[in-house]
Amino acid sequence: MGELSRIVLVTGMPGSGKSTVSAELAARDPEVLVVEVGRRMAELATDMGIISGYAALPMLPAPIRAQLQAAAVESFASASASRILVVAHLQVKGPEGLVPGFPAGILESLDPSAIVLIEAEGRLGSTGLVPGLSTATYRELAIATAKRLRVPLLVLENSGGLAECADRMQALLNNLAV
């Protein structure tokens, strides 16, 4: 794999299979590191005594979430894995309503080579986590983000079994190698 394909942002609506499919790829390839940004932020906040678990993360004020997110990104940026799959939401619900999942500058500092949008229409069990955000709207957000970052957007329909979906994602990612 080339340097260009090292960091890939994996995103999608809640329940779309981002974490599950990414973990399957990591289980197949020891050179793949999966980082769930929200979970890493919650670990950092818990270690600092700010919250007591993942469920409290969305209720933190935006400036604290931004600091945690910057720390989370920094915590894996120097990892030696040949490919880092960064699992994260482009938009989250906070106390102030729907807000960007990545505060200004953080996504740019991550410098992903591509965005993989995982969609699972009709399969989402937790869409209530982001009220008012449809799959179509989330796709538009992913398109705008990819354009802003000038990276390809790869759309993966999470259908069939886990192995089949992971195979399709692996094929998409292999096409990124230089």
Rank of each mutant, 00 (worst) to 15 (best):
Gly94Pro: 01
Pro95Arg: 12
Thr20Met: 01
Ala23Glu: 07
Val151Asp: 07
Met41Tyr: 11
Leu124Cys: 09
Thr20Trp: 00
Gly160Asp: 10
Ala163Tyr: 02
Met48Glu: 15
Leu44Phe: 10
Val35Trp: 08
Arg148Phe: 07
Leu149Pro: 03
Ala88Arg: 09
Ser16His: 07
Leu4Gly: 15
Leu153Asp: 01
Val73Thr: 09
Arg139Thr: 06
Ile7Pro: 06
Ser78Met: 11
Leu162Glu: 13
Ala42Asn: 11
Phe102His: 11
Ser75Pro: 13
Glu96Leu: 15
Arg168Glu: 14
Ser52Trp: 09
Ala66Tyr: 08
Thr145Met: 04
Leu85Tyr: 13
Cys165Ile: 01
Ala166His: 05
Ala146Cys: 11
Thr137Ile: 14
Gly161Phe: 00
Gly160Phe: 02
Pro112Tyr: 09
Ala70Leu: 11
Ser82Gln: 07
Val87Pro: 08
Asp47Tyr: 13
Thr127His: 12
Gly161Met: 07
Gln91Asn: 14
Ile51Pro: 05
Val37Met: 04
Val86Asp: 12
Asp29Phe: 00
Val99Glu: 15
Ala144Cys: 12
Val178Cys: 12
Glu119Gln: 12
Ala72Tyr: 08
Val92Asp: 11
Val8Ile: 10
Leu129Gln: 14
Gly38Asn: 05
Thr135Glu: 14
Leu172Ile: 03
Gly125Cys: 05
Gly49Ile: 07
Ala72Val: 02
Arg148Ser: 14
Ser134Glu: 05
Thr135Ala: 13
Ile115Asp: 02
Asp29Leu: 02
Val21Cys: 09
Ala81Gln: 12
Val99Asn: 11
Val116Lys: 03
Ala142Asp: 08
